[in-house]
Design a protein around this nucleic acid. Structure first.
Lengths: 227, 227
DNA sequence: AGTTCCATACTACCATACAAGTATGGTAGA
DNA sequence: TCTACCATACTTGTATGGTAGTATGGAACT
């Protein structure tokens, strides 16, 4: 499901899509923000057509809501969806980590170790943005090592809501040290082929993602869907 | 991720999208078929704009490949993606069936039983199309009973390739009786809250989906991505 | 005969004009 | 003052013309 395989990433439409997606997931565009096609087309110096294309794609991922003849808004974070995303990811990550404990290419293992070193650095430097990226990369490497790239891409597509809560969390109370420790334990478990332990840590790791979702909802009520 | 929540399902663009998707998944439009914007717009009696919109959405789901300035084709079935879809689905269905064995609403349980009766009918009448729909519905009910509707919708999105192989399989050698028996066993296991047994049957059920993928590749080589 | 080149007929991509539905603010009337 | 109405300025949805890149077939040349 790598979109670059199907869609010309150099086209104006794809460029707008990628930028908007980045801005939405990073909360640069806050949940609930209105986005008109015309205004966006002026910002990006293109016509409405490629903007519309990007809106269609974002709508399909649940990142924006298109209300016909009324407007388009950055979607509010849906707590139920966040929980489901966590559920999905937990199941898939647990299964993948078990595969990794059976067999994992040396190259990818080295990549994990290198990634961990960078995580340590970024943690010490309190570089939250970098840590976020490294976190993503760490898990992607696990999937890639198990030849489950497509699965990872699907997860990414549905992680829009989950990722936004993680960014919010980063704003409030980052505790990257714990995440780093968990990553390190997962790495060691894979290296030692200790599947049961790896799965256990991964399970805790995933459940941490939404541990303080109620706090976030209380703190940023305007970003969440009431439901 | 219910698309009707975000996108006006009554619009021309969505209508074209839904029809094309149905035709592609049912193999009415064979993998590899070329689809030009203009030709499709003439077929559907609409302008190229809504057709383009539908192409964008189909491309994002991997159902068509858009080759800039060259054309648009119905995507070939990617065996690797089929296997990954099966993997994903196995993990998620196993997790859900365990949840169902812990707690499952009476309404949904009744719906399952009703669905099973219809399956028996359709099997006796050799109505493959109906059986396919009932199969889908059976699993959807399981997810709905566990409040995992969003998860089911995500699965649906990525099941394009897997579903097409299942349709192919239906053409060659339908053995709905076995599927019916498995569904029945799953139902009973949920009713008796026998999680281990339910998971085991579900695992076999999922692995059945691609049991004869090599045969299909040999029989319909032009439908598969060489890779 | 084989090869090169070019006219032509496609393709998707983009910009723009128009259509149709919706929110809003002001005005006329009670 | 309050209410009903309507003009207006938005919004997204749709149609269409033009642009640039690509495949193809035939003609001219070697």
């Amino acid at each position: 499901m790598d979109e670059s395989m199907f869609q010309q990433s150099g086209s104006a439409g794809s460029a707008v899509y990628q930028q908007l997606k980045q801005q939405i997931v990073s909360l640069e565009l806050a949940p609930g923000t209105t986005l008109s096609e015309k205004e966006t087309s002026l910002n990006f110096q293109v016509s409405r057509t490629p903007v519309r294309e990007s809106f269609v794609r974002l709508a399909q991922e649940g990142l924006v809501w298109v209300l016909p003849q009324r407007g388009t808004r950055v979607s509010l974070i849906d707590s139920d969806m966040v929980e489901e995303a966590r559920f999905m990811r937990e199941q898939l990550e647990k299964a993948v980590i078990r595969l990794a404990c059976e067999a994992f290419p040396a190259d990818n293992l080295a990549a994990l170790e290198s990634n961990l070193e960078q995580q340590q650095e970024s943690t010490q430097q309190h570089d939250g943005k970098k840590m976020f990226e490294l976190d993503e990369a760490f898990h992607r490497i696990l999937f890639e090592g198990c030849r489950k790239n497509g699965t990872w891409n699907v997860i990414q597509q549905m992680n829009a809501h989950l990722n936004r809560t993680r960014v919010l969390w980063l704003w409030t109370e980052p505790h990257w040290e714990l995440l780093y420790e968990q990553h390190r334990e997962i790495f060691l478990a894979v290296k030692q082929k200790n599947a049961d332990h790896a799965e256990q840590i991964m399970k805790e790791h995933m459940q941490l993602s939404i541990a303080n979702l109620p706090i976030l909802k209380e703190r940023f009520p305007e970003y969440f869907k009431s439901s």
